[in-house]
Design a protein around this nucleic acid. Structure first.
Length: 796
RNA sequence: GGACGAUUAGCUCAGCUGGUUAGAGCGCAUCGCUUACAUCGAUGAGGCCGCAGGUUCGAAUCCUGCAUCGUCCACCA
């Protein structure tokens, strides 16, 4: 057996991978008959737009370790791969391509645009899969799925229809996160907050000047005047205590109290204006055209007397009420807040409680409307500037403070999110959340580490109905059809819309018109939520579904526990009446050396492909696995990959030594398997005992036994790093440093067998971590062997 | 703001339910090409185990507080 002096991954990996693909063992249908009990993992489908990053590599590695170990352990293993159509992400990508040609999707039209996305997918969609193959993953590529496959699409429609018939889907006008660039609503989970330097503008809203003539209830007012006077004196005292807020109270004193020199210069002007204001603090002055109230905290003494009064909206002179609501924080800004139900979630909440009107002033392109002409049709940021200038001119701008706050951004394109009211489709979550909770509470589904169950429960506990519609083109169009009959203005959904899985021949409402499918597509996560069973054929009752569902383990990052895992759980329970998986393994986040999340945009990422190119896939895998300790996040350093490379080389050379020793006794080699069997059964007590084992012999065999047990236990508990450490230590320090050295002195027949035996067992134990090199060496062992180490029996 | 976690050698991390001189890899220093491996071997230097209290015969390990860093979640104008 001639092995090169050092291990060269480049001459091995691609060849071995082709060998595996040819062997067919990734496909459970080709596994030996002894493999009966199923063990399934569905690969979290990466976005078709995606490129492999360290998170993918880590997650894929974990699943490959599990699958390879179980496959050797006699399970009928299926690891099902696939990709996600990733609605917004993909659409944005293709739109960028279009932009290079100076076109937008509207130039193409929906049909052609979608065609183009499919072409794009055909061309680039498999990049990430090719990268995964480079890592050596043992997925069953014959069962690959895409979330927009014909059958998968059918499953999505079926699921939608199911909910619709249950009455859990409804249409509603809600303030939603809206991306003006992508022209779609986004879920809370699709936005990212980015801290930006902003300003907090303090704006004076004049109070409505009440003439005595206008008063109808004199007595009431009289009382108020008194109160105001009392307030005034109180206020005077407070002024001494250096108040910074509530200037409107100050206006009731004889003089306007000032908050700073800037303020003082304007006193004159203010007096001429009537001297009565309520000051609100806002980061978004341009939304004031949509204000329908000013709110204060009911317990706020400063404003107690103003509740129920009216303020006049500057620039439009519209009157709005001053209301009280407990949601208002007395200590923020002035303690008085402008309420814009159309463009703020909290305001929307408050608005609905107080029956306020909702006036939309920002349109779907992020431009102003419903407002005076100077501001009409311009973008919000420009409008902000103009509004400020105008307010300044009429002295209604009290001051501007620097204020850093979190601005919501579209996760896909990075543009600032607008909150606008919009017609959307919702899925009721109450009951689904309930069943999702129960299966985890009862322990049918377990999280590893367990601590992640808390965030799961927290999310389900405070869940809101799921906005499932998106206004993009790439995705699963809602299987809802609208009756086109004129004057079909009914508020009742069922009189206006109907569900149909196919294009309906006639309208099932009026029976006459040609119904039109609604334009919206479903949130990508709606289809992802069906992944564990739709990928196996649901709703058809396929053999695969019967054999491989429920799946065993779902491995994922913590950021999508709620976004995805929770939704798979309730979807699985709702549609299959079974849990979709038994264990949820939440893997570590890969951080860079500084302890920050790896990010492509920041250039802090490491490309796993570079590592594979540089050190080989096995080294990369081992180096990563070596760092998976507990639930701890991984600060990635390349040193560990170098360690992996060195380890591979060590393994290679130790094997070279063993092969050199045993090649002379080739004739005896086939009997080794007998040794192995007996060893397992009687453990050192018979065969090796009768052979008069040396101290070193006994020691290495015992050590191997302990290592095997330890690795089994660790893998059972998802402790991948610990298993890797154990194997490393055993192989290098016990086997190489000690036993191989001793064996040189012993030079006996038994020694050779033990060498081979320990090597073979080590290769098996290491195979899930470093599959290429272990296969390569295995193929060279002078033994009666299986066709591939992939289907060797796992050491127990 | 909430939840969770981290803080141990220059770097990345082990150290289980508290018990003798705190470990590994990388890096560093010195020596060694001994017929598997210089991607190696041997030896060595290097740690008030974040800070301050407490429990205990005894704490890196348990408790409390503080500090710093981080991840995720969150509609604070």
């Amino acid at each position: 057996m001639n092995l090169s002096k050092s291990y060269n991954s480049k001459t091995v990996e691609d060849r071995i991978y082709r060998f595996w693909l040819k062997s067919g063992f990734f496909n459970p249908d080709n596994l030996p008959k002894k493999n009966k009990k199923s063990y399934t993992i569905v690969l979290p489908p990466p976005n078709v737009t995606g490129e492999l990053h360290m998170g993918h590599a880590l997650n894929a590695l974990i699943q490959d370790v599990l699958i390879r170990q179980k496959r050797m352990n006699g399970y009928l293993t299926l690891w099902l791969p696939g990709t996600d159509h990733a609605g917004i992400a993909t659409q944005v990508k293709v739109e960028k391509e279009l932009k290079k040609q100076g076109l937008t999707r509207y130039d193409l039209g929906r049909k052609d645009f979608i065609k183009m996305v499919w072409q794009w997918k055909k061309k680039y969609g498999n990049i990430i899969l090719k990268q995964l193959k480079k890592l050596g993953l043992s997925c069953d590529w014959s069962r690959i799925r895409f979330t927009m496959d014909k059958n998968y699409s059918r499953a999505v429609k079926q699921a939608f229809s199911h909910y619709y018939k249950k009455g859990w889907i409804y249409k509603g006008k809600r303030v939603v996160n809206w991306c003006p660039r992508c022209q779609t609503s986004l879920s809370d989970l699709e936005i990212e907050y980015k801290e930006e330097k902003g300003k907090l503008y303090y704006i004076k809203y004049p109070l409505k000047i009440i003439n005595k003539k206008q008063r109808t209830i004199d007595n009431e007012q009289g009382t108020r005047d008194k109160e105001q006077r009392t307030m005034g004196s109180e206020q005077g005292t407070r002024d001494k205590e250096q108040r910074t807020m509530g200037s409107e109270q100050g206006t009731r004193d004889k003089e306007q109290r000032t908050m700073g020199s800037e303020q003082g210069t304007r006193n004159k002007e203010q007096r001429t204006m009537g001297n009565k204001f309520i000051v609100v603090a806002t980061t978004r002055p341009e939304t004031m055209f949509g204000d329908t109230a000013v709110a204060v905290n009911p317990k706020d003494e400063k404003y107690k007397n103003l509740i129920g009064e009216k303020a006049v909206l500057p620039l439009t002179k519209r009157e709005i009420p001053i209301i009280s609501d407990i949601l208002i924080d007395k200590t923020f800004g002035t303690g008085a807040v402008k309420i814009t139900p159309s463009h703020d979630l909290k305001d929307c909440d408050i608005g609905s409680r107080h029956n306020l009107k909702s006036i939309q002033v920002i349109d779907e392109k992020g431009k102003m409307f419903n407002c005076p002409s100077p501001y009409q049709g311009i973008k919000t940021l420009e409008a902000r500037q103009k509004v400020i200038e105008s307010l300044e001119k009429i002295s209604l701008l009290e001051k501007i403070e620097d204020y850093n706050h979190e601005i919501p951004k579209c996760e896909r394109c990075g543009k600032t999110i607008e909150l606008i009211p919009s017609e959307q489709w919702f899925l009721k979550m109450k009951e689904l959340a309930q069943i999702a909770k129960i299966s985890v509470k009862k322990g049918k589904i377990k999280f590893h580490p367990k601590k992640f169950e808390k965030s799961y429960f927290d999310w389900l506990g405070g869940i809101k109905d799921w906005c499932i519609s998106r206004q993009i083109w790439w995705g699963h169009q809602l299987p809802i059809w609208e009756c086109q009959k004129e004057k079909q203005q009914s508020q009742n959904l069922k009189e206006k819309y109907f569900v149909s899985l196919e294009k309906p021949k006639k309208c099932s409402i009026c029976g006459k018109c040609r119904p039109k499918q609604v334009n919206d597509v479903l949130d990508t996560w709606f289809s992802s939520a069906l992944w564990p069973f739709a990928s196996l054929g649901w709703p058809r009752k396929t053999k695969d579904l019967k054999k491989f569902y429920p799946t065993n383990v779902l491995s994922t990052g913590r950021d999508i526990i709620n976004l995805w895992v929770a939704r798979m759980i309730f979807s699985g329970l709702e549609f299959t009446e079974k849990i979709p998986f038994k264990d949820v393994y939440v893997h570590a986040t890969v951080l860079n050396k500084e302890g920050k999340r790896m990010s492509k945009s920041l250039g802090t990422g490491v490309d796993p492909m570079d590592l594979i190119e540089k050190y080989g896939a096995d080294a990369t895998r081992f180096g990563i696995a070596y760092q998976i300790m507990g639930g701890q996040d991984i600060k990635f350093i390349e040193n560990n990959i170098i360690m992996g490379k060195k380890f591979c080389n060590k393994l290679w050379n130790a094997s070279r030594f063993v092969l050199q020793q045993t090649s002379s006794s080739k004739r005896k080699a086939p009997h080794l398997r007998r040794y192995e069997k007996r060893y397992k059964q009687e453990i050192l007590k018979t065969e090796f005992k009768t052979k008069n084992l040396t101290k070193a012999d006994k020691k290495i065999l015992t050590s191997l036994e302990i290592t095997t047990k330890s690795v089994n236990k660790d893998l059972e508990n998802f402790l991948f790093g610990k298993a890797a450490h154990t194997l490393y230590d055993f192989f290098w320090h016990n086997f190489c440093d000690v036993y191989i050295e001793e064996s040189k002195k012993q030079n006996k027949e038994t020694t050779e067998k033990i060498l081979l035996y320990v090597l073979l067992t080590s290769l098996k134990l290491l195979h899930p971590f470093i599959p290429f090199i272990t296969e390569e060496i295995y193929q060279k062992l002078p033994l009666k062997k299986e066709k591939s180490i992939i289907i060797e029996n796992w050491p127990i």
